[in-house]
Simulated assay, not measured.
Amino acid sequence: MSTEVRPVKTPKPVPPLVAYLIIIVFTATMFVIGVIIGKAFFWENYDTTPIADRIIEVAKQKVAQDPKNPKNYVDLGWGYFKKKDYNNALSQYKKAIDLDKKYYPAYLNLGILYIETGKYDLAANTLKNAIALQPKSSNAHLNLGIAYTKLGKYNEALKELNEAYKLSPGSTRIIYEIGVTYEKMGKIEEAKYQYKSALEFDPKFEEAKKALERLNKK
């Protein structure tokens, strides 16, 4: 007696449109579940404090724990600086210097603060002190160059900016600031060359891009 062997029926393929609908529904469902879980367990506990306020809070704790460490006051001043509370930033940087007359970061940050607030003579003098403490500080030479440019002392500015570049070759910020100085001097072609050089290193450098576009329109 023979047994009839029936062919196995293969499942029909799911139409592409139906498959896409299944994927979309599944993805949407998982997204909703994720939102519910995130809201219930994570998002309400996430720290939304602005970064400047967090820096200030941590630095205040460090000052309270170690009030004779100038670094803690510089950190606190940096938090106030980021918050654009320049008076409090100034106070903290000066406290750091009072604690240690040779603490280079305090002079550097104070010099940058003076540039930000338009006190360029004070900035130049403060940054000279920073350089006396750290002659190979590219950042100090850079900012002193910026201060000199603001004061219209272009030759001094170029000297400092070129020194900064020797210490940090390839720095697009330094190249850009050299361009700014040349532009202030009325040396447009030299300025264009510097802006182009900055963009070769960093094509997304918006300040250099806008400066070059401005000069090309003249």
Rank of each mutant, 00 (worst) to 15 (best):
L151A: 09
Y165T: 05
K95S: 15
A147K: 06
A130M: 00
P67L: 07
G170T: 10
Y80G: 10
D121M: 01
Y120G: 08
K60L: 13
D98Y: 06
L133I: 08
A123M: 02
N45F: 13
I51F: 15
I37K: 14
Q92C: 10
Q92F: 09
N129W: 02
K128T: 14
N109K: 06
L142W: 02
Y73H: 03
T49Y: 14
K82Q: 14
K39G: 15
E160M: 11
A124M: 05
I115D: 10
K39E: 13
G77Y: 11
I56F: 15
G170Y: 01
K128L: 00
V35H: 11
H141M: 06
E163L: 00
N125D: 12
Y104R: 10
R173S: 11
N125S: 12
T149K: 07
K68V: 02
N87R: 07
V32E: 09
I56R: 01
K94G: 02
P169T: 02
K150T: 04
N162H: 02
K136C: 04
Y165V: 06
I56M: 11
G145Y: 05
A123P: 07
A164I: 00
N45L: 04
N155K: 14
W43Q: 12
I55R: 13
G77C: 08
Y93S: 09
I131F: 08
Y107G: 13
A124K: 06
L133F: 02
